[in-house]
Design a protein around this nucleic acid. Structure first.
Lengths: 153, 153
DNA sequence: GTTTTTGTCTATCGATTAAATAGACTATTT
DNA sequence: AAATAGTCTATTTAATCGATAGACAAAAAC
C-alpha cells in the first residue's frame, strides 16, 4: 500500500500535467482543488522539486510547474522519490539494493527469486507509464463511460 | 516493501514446505534455524494457523506443519494473511476493496487505472506461485550455480 | 493424575514512521 | 517598503513495527 503522501503527490503531478504550459500553479490552489492539507502538500512538492521533477518561482505570479513535459516524467520516478524503492525486498532493488541479512544464501533464496519477478513486473509498468499516459488513460476512460452522449444528436 | 513479519513468515513456510510429510516442527527449532526471534515467530505462525494455512499440535511430538501440500498454498495467500492486500491502493484491491475518499471520480481516476495494472501484475505472479514453486526455483538455482560439481567425476 | 512438553492468548514496550501543523525566514514582484 | 508566495526547521499526535513477558491450556508421558 502506498502512503497518502505518495498519493497526494501523484494527484498534484496529474493536475500539473493537465495544466502544463499554462504557467505555475499556487500550492494553495493545488491543495484546495485536490483537497490536500496545504502544509503537507508544501512538503511533498518541495521533495519533488529537490528531485528535479518540479520547478518553482517565488513572489507574485509564482507557484509550481513541471520541470519537464508530462511525457518525460514516469510514474515510477515519482513513486521512488516519495515512497522509496519499488522492490518488495531491498535485496532485489535496482535503485536501493541492500544485502539480505536474514537469509542463508542470497543467490539461491526462493523468496528473493520470486520477489525479483514481482519487482520487475512493477517496474515494467511504472517506468514505462508517464504522467501523460496516466492522464490519457483517464481521458480515454471518460470518453468510454460517457461516450453514449457523443453519439446522440 | 514487505515487513520483517511477512519475510519471517515466508521463511518459515519455506522450511515447513521443505520438510513437508516428515511430521511437525517445533517453533523453537524453526526460530533457531531461520534466526527469527522466537516470540515473534509464535505470533506469526499463529496467524497463519488461524487463516488455515498451518496446523499445530500441542505437547510432546507436537509443533507446526502445513495444513495442505506446498503445491496448494500460494505465496499470494501467505502475503495477504501477513501483510494485507497486494494492491498499492485500496480502491483496486480484489480482496479488501475500499472506496477512494481522495479522488474526484473513482471510475476515471488515472492513478487508479495505472495501479490496477500494477495490482494485476503482482497478483498474476504471486497467486500462481506456490510454496512448492518457490522451493523448486531455489533448488534449480542451486543446481545452476554449483552445477559444475555435478559434472566432475 | 501429576509432570513435562509445547502451543495459545493477552498485554505491553520502545522505536520508528505517517500525517499533519506552526512559525520564522527568504526570494520575488509591485 | 509592502505584499506575495515558496523554503526551512521543529514539533505534535497517532499509528504501526518489531519484539518481549508471562500466565494459560492442551496433549502426552510417566
Amino acid at each position: 500500500m502506498i502512503s497518502k503522501k505518495t498519493k497526494y503527490g501523484l494527484q498534484a503531478l496529474l493536475l500539473l500535467s493537465r495544466e502544463y504550459g499554462e504557467g505555475p500553479l499556487l500550492i494553495s490552489d493545488l491543495a484546495e482543488r485536490e483537497r490536500i492539507p496545504k502544509k503537507f502538500l508544501e512538503y511533498i512538492l518541495l521533495q519533488l522539486k529537490n528531485a528535479g521533477v518540479l520547478q518553482s518561482r517565488k513572489g507574485k505570479g509564482g507557484g509550481y510547474s513541471l520541470a519537464k513535459p508530462p511525457a518525460e516524467i514516469s510514474v515510477g520516478r515519482a513513486i521512488r522519490i516519495l515512497e522509496g524503492p519499488l522492490a518488495p525486498v531491498a535485496c532485489v532493488s535496482e535503485t536501493a539494493y541492500q544485502r539480505c541479512t536474514e537469509c542463508h544464501d542470497e543467490a539461491t533464496c526462493g523468496i528473493r527469486l520470486v520477489m525479483k519477478d514481482v519487482r520487475d513486473a512493477m517496474a515494467e509498468i511504472l517506468d514505462h507509464t508517464t504522467l501523460q499516459d496516466m492522464l490519457q488513460r483517464s481521458e480515454d476512460e471518460k470518453k468510454k463511460l460517457h461516450g453514449v452522449v457523443d453519439f446522440q444528436i
